[in-house]
């Protein structure tokens, strides 16, 4: 019995690993094979000359440029909302909060982190409906609403990475500032935050990736199939993940479907690159921590 276990277990381990790898390779390979031929200038710019399109002189039809611009605007705005609130909350948790305060706050952040993104999207949508009904009829789902909802979605990531990056600093570093007369705030601002920056940065990059790939939040809060390059915070917009979803259900011909493959490939590449970047920053962090001892 034990003998057989000893043989079967590695077999099972290798079997499941290979199954998983084969599946993921199939997905990546399939996207590459189908998506690569679509990757050219017209995929992004349609029939518009690239320079004119980039300078927003001429609208792009049938290209991904508006969706790419939309995603960039969305990510930048969402992260811009989430960073100040998230980093400040993280600082509070790591440096000020008493055990009691932490016990009260922690479950709230854990729940926020665990909420399905469609629920966060539904919240954004409900708030918009509420404000539209009671305050201003001009308010509709739009870039602003989406970016705020996405900011809520990634807020717990930023809070937690800030908190851990600060808490993981060795006591020796933690005491250096105060030993020289630094006040609590000075210590945070001049010693602890700069030291924790790589950790916080890698968390922010993961949050960017999350904003770039999320579809459920934006489909409820203002992403549409055709809106052109976003012109205002209060306008609807296009975004890569929503475009992929939309094409998969509504494509009319093979050419349109090909742009879907291209978009999926681009989004996958963006997310993997962001993840790699965060990984690399964190690795540099570990190496530096080791060099310190």
């Amino acid at each position: 019995m034990r003998r057989r276990m000893g043989k079967l277990l590695p077999l099972f381990a290798w079997g499941s690993t290979l199954t998983l790898l084969a599946a993921i390779m199939t997905i990546a390979g399939y996207l590459l094979v189908e998506g690569m031929p679509a990757l050219d200038r017209t995929l992004i710019f349609g029939d518009t000359p690239p320079l004119a399109a980039l300078l927003l002189r001429r609208p792009v039809f049938g290209g991904l440029l508006p969706a790419i611009f939309g995603t960039i605007a969305l990510v930048v705005l969402a992260v811009a909302w989430a960073i100040p609130l998230g980093v400040a909350s993280g600082i509070y948790l790591a440096e000020y909060a008493t055990t009691t305060a932490k016990r009260l706050l922690d479950p709230a952040f854990d729940i926020l982190a665990g909420l399905p993104s469609i629920v966060v999207g539904l919240f954004g949508f409900a708030v918009t409906v509420f404000l539209n009904r009671h305050f201003s009829a001009a308010l509709h789902p739009c870039l602003l609403v989406s970016s705020l909802a996405l900011a809520f979605l990634v807020l717990p990531y930023i809070i937690r990475t800030t908190q851990t990056a600060l808490e993981e600093l060795p006591p020796a570093i933690r005491m250096t500032g105060p030993a020289l007369g630094a006040s609590r705030l000075q210590n945070i601002r001049m010693v602890l935050l700069p030291q924790a920056l790589p950790g916080i940065a890698s968390g922010v990059i993961l949050a960017i990736g999350r904003c770039a790939e999320d579809t459920a939040v934006i489909m409820l809060t203002g992403a549409v199939a055709a809106a052109g390059v976003p012109r205002s915070l209060l306008s609807q917009y296009e975004a890569l993940p929503f475009y992929i979803y939309y094409i998969s259900a509504q494509y009319t011909d093979a050419k349109e479907l090909a742009t879907g493959y291209g978009a999926a490939l681009i989004l996958l590449a963006i997310c993997l690159a962001l993840f790699g970047l965060a990984f690399w920053i964190r690795k540099g962090l570990d190496r530096r921590a080791l060099a310190h001892f």
Partner: peptide, 20 residues
């Protein structure tokens, strides 16, 4: 490799799901 896999967008899984 496994860590990298966590970065794959869910809409990409859905997209490949439909067509493959």
């Amino acid at each position: 490799a496994v860590a990298m896999m966590t970065a794959v967008p869910t809409v990409v899984y859905g997209f490949v799901g439909i067509f493959l």
